[in-house]
Design a protein around this nucleic acid. Structure first.
Lengths: 245, 245
DNA sequence: TTCAGTTGTCTAGATTAATAGACAACTACC
DNA sequence: GGTAGTTGTCTATTAATCTAGACAACTGAA
């Protein structure tokens, strides 16, 4: 942080919003780790070159997000944080990847359905268009904070029961195992970034204007046959991706 | 686009700004490819549920960016676009990766210097802290549109003259070759996303609030010895990254 | 030429965001 | 108990954003 970057006026983004965003990344960078709390509001106001009330609006917004908590007479405490790094390589697995960065890693199945494959999905899975695919939507949580939401497609001809296994077991890796596929590999991952849409914001409890990292991946079996393609959106505030080639 | 997603009020982001952002992604998605121009302003206004003047502010902003051009009495034409996909794998090269997606791919060297390695850089390059490194900053252009800016670090002990070669030749791959390194591999790439800072916006002509994809990479020689680490920021509107593992 | 369709400009008013200052309320520490 | 340091609340004012309506200016086609 510090006063070297003043806020931008007339940019279409309100000052309190810019300030909230910058404080959020400062917290993620560990800038206030020593004290565990933010500098007083009037000091932040002079740093950013705005009025104390404007800073207060930013802090109220961050408090709404659950990132900080203001206590009258005392200060503003940092209560939530954590930036995760998720490794992506040949053997990418969501829960294993987070590893020791967190104490609990869970996924929640939101929805599943069987439908004829859209052209794009069929091409990625290398099946004929309109052949049935199983679509599964799930959300990922780390220490009970939502960090991702994803959409998976499996060829229904090969894994007709994978949705039932997923519901029962909860893990894609183990659902594959239950379908007779003990191992699989990540063939490709395409990453882009954009603003979160309304549904993503709802699922991951993001604020308007938040950024998501979108990873489109294809997994194959050991014979290089596609077994799954998926589209996972990560909250960019909470996750970065590390590719190992 | 379409009216199913109304704009959000009191989100800290002005309505014209939200509308500009959404029209920008609609254009990138090819939504108006048939006509080559946007619907009339009053129609956009009803779609988004705002006043025509608000839409006009959004269009003026996009025109400032060079993405559209309004012609009185005629309509609003889409004049600039293109979303590139840059492959990232063992043999990632900037100019080769863009390949046939564009007719011209160039880089411009902005700055170079020799300095003692900061701790983080030294660790990535596996050299002793404070040993000299060559820092090079450059910008990447595709069809004369800026799409990236990057910072590269090379161990000065091994490649003392790489900056001179880079100035003379312009290509990192060929500068390495001139330093006696005919081939090198991408060891790791870490990708994150955030809002562009002031300098990135200036270099890539981005609007305030634009998103950048940041890729931190390490390249090694064939003996797995690091030869370069770099930090490249791509305009997320213009580039997506495709990892092949 | 006419006219429907579109963008450009102007004025006015309502709503929201930001500034300014004063003071109350609370905490921690002496 | 007192006090320095901090957040909470209130009022008032100014600036920016959004809405509303009217009409001018221009384009392309009938």
């Amino acid at each position: 942080m510090a006063q070297q970057k003043p806020v931008e006026r007339h940019s279409g983004v309100s000052l309190w919003r810019q300030i909230a965003d910058r404080i959020r990344v400062s917290i993620a960078d560990g800038e206030f780790r020593e004290t565990g709390r933010l500098p007083p509001a009037f000091e932040l106001a002079t740093r950013f070159g705005v009025n104390r009330h404007t800073v207060r609006a930013a802090l109220a917004f961050l408090a709404e997000e659950g990132l900080v908590e203001s206590i009258q007479g005392h200060g503003t405490l940092i209560v939530g944080n954590r930036q995760l790094t998720l490794p992506i390589g040949r053997r990418t697995r969501f829960s294993a990847g987070v590893g020791d960065q967190a104490s609990s890693v869970t996924t929640r199945l939101l929805h599943s359905a069987e439908l004829p494959a859209p052209a794009e999905i069929a091409a990625l899975l290398r099946i004929a268009p309109e052949r049935p695919v199983i679509e599964v939507e799930e959300a990922g949580y780390v220490d009970d904070r939502p960090v991702s939401c994803s959409q998976h497609f499996f060829p229904a001809d090969r894994f007709p029961d994978i949705a039932h296994h997923l519901i029962a077991i909860g893990s894609i890796t183990r659902a594959f195992a239950a379908c007779g596929l003990p191992d699989y590999l990540r063939a490709s991952t395409e990453v882009s970034a954009r603003h979160a849409d309304a549904r993503e914001r709802e699922l991951m409890k993001l604020s308007p204007g938040a950024i998501v990292l979108e990873a489109r991946a294809v997994n194959t079996d050991l014979d290089d046959q596609p077994v799954q393609c998926s589209r996972t959106r990560f909250s960019a505030d909470r996750v970065s991706l590390r590719m190992t080639t």
